[in-house]
Design a protein around this nucleic acid. Sequence first.
DNA 1: CCTTGACTTGGAGTCGACTCCAGGTGTTAC
DNA 2: GTAACACCTGGAGTCGACTCCAAGTCAAGG
Lengths: 133, 133
Amino acid sequence: MKIAEVSERFGLSVDTLRYYERVGLIPPVHRNEGGIRDYDELDLMRVDFIKCMRGAGLPVEVLIDYMDLVQQGDITIEARKEILIEQRNLVAARLEEMQKTLERLNYKIEAYEKALLKKEQEIGQVEELMAGD
Amino acid sequence: MKIAEVSERFGLSVDTLRYYERVGLIPPVHRNEGGIRDYDELDLMRVDFIKCMRGAGLPVEVLIDYMDLVQQGDITIEARKEILIEQRNLVAARLEEMQKTLERLNYKIEAYEKALLKKEQEIGQVEELMAGD
DNA sequence: CCTTGACTTGGAGTCGACTCCAGGTGTTAC
DNA sequence: GTAACACCTGGAGTCGACTCCAAGTCAAGG
């Protein structure tokens, strides 16, 4: 699969995909004779993983470290687990924070809705008054 | 309340507080005779709101626009509501994404735990073998 | 053969959000 | 009265994460 398709499929720019490869987030993608990237299934799984983790705010650097460990094989499982646990905790914390913020936003939106309703009523009353002229 | 206390209370650096004021996220804070900031209750509420919203990823620029509208009074209620609805939807979307990522992380962590258990068992077996010598 | 278009590279530029700094002032403590 | 300290300002610097660019290569179509 060539880079444009991957870009399309994951909603990441071509530049971003190349950037990820450059900084070592993804090991060098296989090339065809012409030197053009040809993503295989494994590459796609990696991109998917990265995209997902970046979407939750995991820093690129942490992901680089993690992907590095993956490359080193089974001896690094413990270390990888530690990284994921740490990041999981951070994500869980952010999640909670965002839930509270979401509630707060909803509360405020409701308050604005009530305020607008009240305003409408007042206009209604004014119109009634004016209709009485 | 002086800036250091506010910084302490909200876990924002003094520089960040001043930055927020500079870019118009918070209207100019009242100063005492010496020209030193003295945050009042309203200021604190604003800082709290900003901190909460920033924590959920709302861009500073959007918050500036919003706070500007607040300053302009009741005529802007509709516009403010629209902003909040848009941001609420974005937060909700991010929240969902993060929940999926959290699940994925938990799944992976479990998988690593299983892998580690299996490894331990193998080591146990090896030790049994060695004990038989 | 030449153009078009999708790809390549290394390196520079941008953007959002702070964060730091030099140099200055005002209040308190000895 | 002078040292220490907490504050002030405007402006520059940093950081993470892209994003853009100029210049080059290659395959396919007219």
